[in-house]
Design a protein around this nucleic acid. Structure first.
Length: 885
RNA sequence: GCGAAAGUGGCGGAACUGGUAGACGCGCUGGACUUAGAAUCCAGUGGGGAAACCCGUGAGGGUUCGAGUCCCUCCUUUCGCACCA
């Protein structure tokens, strides 16, 4: 081996070896335990960022570790290649999204290869390839047949100047990002997937996913939001009947049927038919409804906006008392959720309470507090008002506990046909239509005479033309006659092709199945998927905790019900990695806009007063002060990204991998640190020279474990303890940082160890081998070379994970920590296996301990915890032995 | 607003099951080598104190022989909220 570590040469050699030996190309092997290790596929934005490096390093470490444990490991990679950024890029550079995307894929694939990930590239897929997305279309048609896919209207952000639909991200403070126009809500026809049909199963199966982080399961459960309640009809009063020109009732859903007698108003959505009917003869109301239609469709915006309402003048009748109740239009009631109407019970609901105070509506107390927190509801609001209690002022239903009241009221309503118990979900159906070009075409044809006609299977895929360039004013497909002009498959007459494309979450809902059989041209998946599924370990960002993961689970269940796959759940274990952060430096320009400076270009120094100041040098040579803004997610907008390519060039892929694994545990955020990167690089060089100096003196003979000296046994013990820790840290805890720390500690022990005899060198040799194997999943290129240098024919990538020698870890005596009343006061050494009485005796014989106890008479009890090697002496005298000693 | 998480030295983090707080790394200080050092090696490094010791895990309470870890209240930060991926 070379005396000095040259990352470029080492990485070239190792990568060439893996390529030549096809080390990572795997096949289904019946009888061999498989391990499917999957990282979320990247969007081909052009360049890898540190978030990718972190994600794929975690996956690669696990994949290589499991391979060393003897598993048949699949680690594939592909491209989430449809989406908005390609269209945005097209608008600024005029390049068709297809060309831009494929160029990006080329570059990013090379970047991934340079990092040495053990990926089976023969299975690579790109979601923009017709051979992939034809199966999106095929499954969509199956869903249409089963009624899982259907059409209704949906609300979108509309830019009135560009005449185009905007994504939420394109709405900035209520205005279109390009035009600055106030965004409006608009209803358009949309295709939905009936995910709510699976709500119960999606919720129930969460309990059977113990390999998922608890918080992700909680977030999904809350997102699905199952609630048991009651659907109640409030019949139209004569005025509403007249306005609607029909009989009818206003339907609401409530979990608090026990408060039905406290209803003093009804709140309905601006788009509700009753609201629209009232507005025809009420210009003020029409204007208010128009106001509600403005603004964004984002839930966070709706929830934080000021609660406003206006009376309709129309009434409905209370189902029991028959008293008229006025309907109000309220901006916090959404048409898309539930029935688009809620009953207003200001006495026992905080939002209704606020609304009633503002609009001077009456507040009625219909629940008596069980804790006596209140007698009568009056301002200000206290939390106890919405607690369950005993019904009062509720006619025949007074004096009942919560559940009894709900049961009695809903039973009575049901008898009279005015309501029933029902389960409601917060989860809404998945709208998949996008009025965009760069996505998977929805395979439908609209015919004047036949209506909506599915594209026949044999005409799939509906290919997306790849030469169009969007200009920001709507979907180019809708302007491309070559695309939309077609003949109706049913009647053969002229027809128009659907020009909406699918949400890109469709693409990513099943790509992991396709990796099993990417070359299958006749079916979506084949029997190879049965071998590889489910994914054993999935790794990706926490930001996907709800949507992508829920959609994938749904898609899997649909495919299962169609008999395409056998699994209920796609991902057995989930690891959600944290974000990569870096410092943010900026300077406010004269116009108030902030300009951001990359941390690599910022220097720190002390000013005359000793305070730390930050400076950067402009291209013109001028040095200016910049403001430190703390840590932020690496992003283009804050100009605080670190380019992985430069990092690999300067330090090598192994340093990049080691640093990202060492700086923090995978689930937490990772703070970038140039000094930390240098520390990682330094450690690799130290390891390199340790091995170099060792093998340079020739390889030692065989280790004889039976006749070792005390120092030899000490190093062996350290080596096997470190190995045991790393095995557990990587295999069970997924804490790579502590596994690396254990390796560093072991290398420190190796450095302190003097070798004079051949057996000394054998012990050192074993320790170096253990470090090399332990670190090989993390720094595979360096390990490849060191393993060869340590005298092995077999490449380290094909070696097994070493076994811990339990006998190496035994000790003759153990140290116990002795506390007095919980404070550390001494340490005693006892023979290994000493019983509790002996440990107690040793503890009480310690002079320093006794000083704090204040004599044996003061000892009340002694608690010995053998597994923790700690003993606590509980003494009656106060700790702090001065007065006794 | 709703939902979810996280707060430990100068910094990243460790302490896994309620049992020695600060492993490992960075930075800093001192020393060695060197013409030189942003290279390498050695030693020290939570705060206070001469020491004995005392104090320390966002704040305040509680449970326990013992709390960074469990419970309650509060503060701060981050993530998600359905058309970014």
């Amino acid at each position: 081996m070379e005396e000095h570590y040259d990352p470029a040469a080492v990485e070239r050699a190792a990568q060439a070896y893996w390529e030549r030996s096809r080390s990572f190309e795997v096949r289904e092997e019946k009888g061999r335990e498989k391990y499917y290790c999957l990282s979320m596929l990247p969007y081909p934005s052009g360049r890898l960022h540190m978030g990718h490096v972190r994600n794929y390093t975690i996956g690669d470490v696990l994949a290589r570790f499991m391979r060393m444990q003897g598993r048949n490991v699949l680690q594939p990679m592909g491209w989430d290649a449809f989406g908005l950024p390609a269209e945005n890029a097209a608008m600024s550079n005029g390049l068709p999204p297809a060309r831009w995307t494929r160029q990006n894929i080329e570059h990013m694939r090379a970047q991934l290869k340079s990092l040495g990930f053990g990926i089976d590239w023969s299975r690579e897929i790109a979601t923009c390839d017709p051979s992939y997305y034809r199966w999106n279309q095929w499954l969509f048609l199956r869903m249409l047949e089963k009624g899982i896919a259907y059409r209704k209207t949906g609300v979108v952000n509309w830019d009135p100047i560009d005449q185009t639909v905007l994504a939420n991200e394109q709405v900035i403070e209520g205005r279109g990002w390009r035009t600055g126009a106030l965004v409006e809500k608009r209803e358009i026809p949309t295709y939905y997937l009936n995910i709510t049909r699976y709500a119960e199963e999606l919720l129930g199966c969460l309990e059977r996913l113990p390999g998922w982080p608890e918080r992700v399961r909680l977030m999904q459960a809350n997102w699905i939001g199952r609630s048991e309640g009651c659907e109640i009809s409030f019949p139209y009063a004569p005025d509403t009947r007249a306005a609607m020109s029909a009989e009818g009732a206003l339907k609401v859903f409530t979990t608090r049927a026990d408060t039905l007698f406290g209803v003093t108003f009804m709140a309905i959505a601006a788009e509700h038919p009753v609201a629209l009917a009232a507005a025809t003869s009420n210009p003020g109301l029409a204007e208010f409804i128009e106001e509600c239609r403005r603004g964004s469709v984002m839930e966070a915006d709706v929830a934080t906006q000021e609660k406003k309402g206006m009376r309709t003048g129309l009434h409905v009748l209370h189902p029991f008392t028959g008293k008229p109740i006025e309907a109000w239009v309220a901006n916090y009631v959404l048409m898309g959720y539930g029935e688009g109407a809620v009953m207003g019970v200001p006495g026992h609901d905080e939002r209704d309470f606020e609304f009633a105070l503002k609009s001077s509506l009456p507040i009625v107390t219909v629940v008596r507090s069980k804790t006596g927190a209140y007698e009568e509801v009056r301002a200000p609001w206290i939390a106890a008002y919405c607690e369950h209690g005993i019904t009062v002022n509720s006619g025949e239903f007074s004096g009942l506990e919560f559940q009894a009241a709900v049961d009695a009221i809903s039973a009575s309503l049901e008898r009279r046909g005015l309501g029933k118990k029902r389960v409601q979900y917060r989860l809404r159906d998945w709208g998949i239509s996008r009025q965009r070009y760069w996505g998977c075409p929805i395979p439908l044809i609209h015919c004047e005479s036949c209506g909506e006609v599915p594209v026949p299977d044999e005409q799939l895929p509906v290919a997306l033309p790849e030469d169009l360039v969007p200009d920001g004013s709507g979907n180019p497909l809708a302007k491309s006659a070559a695309f939309y002009q077609c003949t109706c498959p049913k009647c053969g007459g002229p027809a128009r092709r659907e020009t909406d494309t699918m949400d890109t979450f469709v693409d990513s809902s099943w790509y992991y199945m396709r990796y099993a059989c990417p070359d299958q041209g006749r079916a979506m998946v084949d029997e190879r998927a049965a071998y590889w599924l489910p994914v054993d370990q999935y790794i990706g960002g926490i930001e996907h905790a709800i949507l992508h993961l829920l959609y994938s689970r749904f898609w899997t269940k649909v495919m299962r019900d169609l008999g395409l796959v056998a699994v209920d759940e796609p991902f057995t274990n989930l690891l959600t990695q944290g974000m990569v952060l870096n410092h943010v430096y900026s300077r406010a320009a004269a116009d108030g806009r902030r300009r951001y400076f990359n941390p690599a270009d910022v220097r720190s120094r002390r000013d005359a007063a000793g305070a730390e100041v930050f400076e950067t040098t402009l291209p013109g040579g001028e040095t200016i002060r910049v403001d430190y803004q703390g840590l932020g997610k690496m992003s283009k907008s804050e100009n605080n990204g670190v380019d992985p390519e430069g990092l690999v060039k300067r330090f090598g892929a192994d340093t990049a991998r080691l640093f990202t694994m060492f700086a923090s545990p995978p689930e937490q955020t990772l703070e970038w640190s140039d000094e930390g990167v240098q520390g990682a690089s330094r450690f690799i060089r130290r390891l390199w020279s340790s091995v170099y100096e060792h093998v340079n003196r020739g390889l030692p003979s065989r280790l004889e474990t039976q006749a070792l000296s005390e120092p030899q046994r000490g190093l062996r013990r350290a080596a096997h303890q470190a190995l045991a820790k790393a095995t557990d840290d990587i295999g069970r805890r997924r804490n790579f940082n502590t596994a690396i720390a254990a390796s560093m500690e072991l290398l420190n022990s190796v450095g302190r160890f003097d070798d004079v005899s051949d057996q000394d060198r054998c012990v050192r040799h074993e320790a170096l081998e253990i470090i090399t194997l332990m670190l090989s999943p993390i720094i595979p290129h360096v390990a490849h070379e060191l393993w060869r240098a340590l005298g092995h024919e077999c490449a380290v990538v094909d070696e097994s994970w070493p076994a811990v020698d339990q006998s190496a870890m035994t000790q003759d005596s153990v140290e116990f920590v002795v506390q007095v009343n919980g404070k550390l006061r001494g340490r005693v050494r006892v023979p290994a296996g000493a019983d509790e009485a002996a440990i107690r005796e040793a503890a009480l014989s310690d002079e320093h301990v006794m000083k704090f106890v204040g004599g044996r008479a003061a000892v009340k009890r002694v608690i010995v915890v053998p597994g923790r090697q700690i003993a606590n002496v509980v003494a009656s005298a106060p700790a702090g032995g001065q007065q006794d000693g």
